[in-house]
Amino acid sequence: MKRIGLFLATNLAILIVLGIILNITGANRFLTPQGLDIQTLLVFSAIIGFGGAFISLLLSKTIAKFSTGAKVIDPQAPANAREAWLVQTVRQLAERAKIGMPEVAIYEGAPNAFATGAFKNNSLVAVSTGLLQSMTEEEVTAVLGHEVAHVANGDMVTLTLIQGVLNTFVVFFARIVGYFVDRVLLKNERGLGIGYFAAVIVSEIVFGVLASIIVAWFSRQREFRADEGAARLMQSREPMIKALARLGGLTPGELPRSFEASGISGGGGVAALFATHPPIEQRIAALKSL
């Protein structure tokens, strides 16, 4: 229930902010007596597409902490030896990756880990209790290296930009299709008819599915890069190979969709085309081929 409430509250806040921006800029007035104003429609689509993606990115750390119940470790006063080791390990990896020290957190759950945040020098790296209990220190270090590599590679921002571009095209072309159906096929000459709204909804669903496939493909490529980054940070590919082999025998913990792509595993989806992570076997093979 907590995740559902946060999801609804976040989306409501995004809609309110975007609505204000659209009214101020006038980008929501793309339909004129002469037809569609393509330039205004493109501005409208970009505000919707990029606005939602970037607001979600800026809120990602807060959402991640709240939705997983992650407890951020005080680097100056860790509660125990395990927390002290985690902070020190992430600090060493961050220094090698030449990024600012991330916040380090632990959350209750099945084996998984994730990194999120809008900025390289202000990020969050979190691991689950299940992962800490299931892996050796060397394997956990490799997983932490994978997450730090995500931050160093700017994967969160990259995927946000990709999502923003695709969202823009989904919104833009859905309304083009809606206008065509309403005015050309149904011959409606009085404002926006039911044909427009129905066609926009169907088009957004279809185009959205296609966009999800593209985003998932990019996400899978970033996973290979993060695995390679972990190997470089540890100056050996073997720890990451061992960590992945261990993960292959575990049931990964579920992560909220907003930062699922930055986890260490999971995100299989209903088919391979929608998977945010490649199969473990492919990731291990890629590391062995380095």
Rank of each mutant, 00 (worst) to 15 (best):
T129Q: 13
E223D: 13
A77T: 13
N122E: 14
E103C: 04
E95I: 11
G19C: 08
V151Q: 03
F44G: 10
R257W: 07
A70H: 00
F259N: 01
A285E: 15
V157L: 15
I106P: 01
T40R: 14
S60V: 13
V209F: 14
V165W: 01
G5V: 07
L192Q: 07
L22Q: 12
N80D: 15
F172P: 03
K242S: 15
Y196H: 09
E254R: 04
G191N: 08
G164L: 05
A126D: 06
Q92K: 12
L244W: 11
T32I: 05
A70K: 00
D227E: 09
V90W: 00
E108M: 14
G100N: 06
S236Q: 05
G130C: 13
V43K: 08
A216R: 02
N112F: 07
R225G: 03
R96D: 00
S236N: 14
I38Y: 15
R222K: 12
G5K: 04
K71T: 06
F30Q: 05
L144Y: 03
N167D: 07
E204G: 11
A77K: 15
I73A: 04
L185D: 09
A77Q: 14
L41F: 09
G109V: 13
F172G: 00
S219H: 02
Q34Y: 02
F172Q: 09
E103L: 07
N112L: 08
V148Y: 02
I213C: 14
L210V: 13
D74Q: 04
I21Y: 02
N112W: 08
S60M: 01
L124Q: 04
R237M: 05
Q88T: 12
L159S: 08
Q34K: 08
F173L: 14
A70V: 10
E108S: 14
N80Y: 14
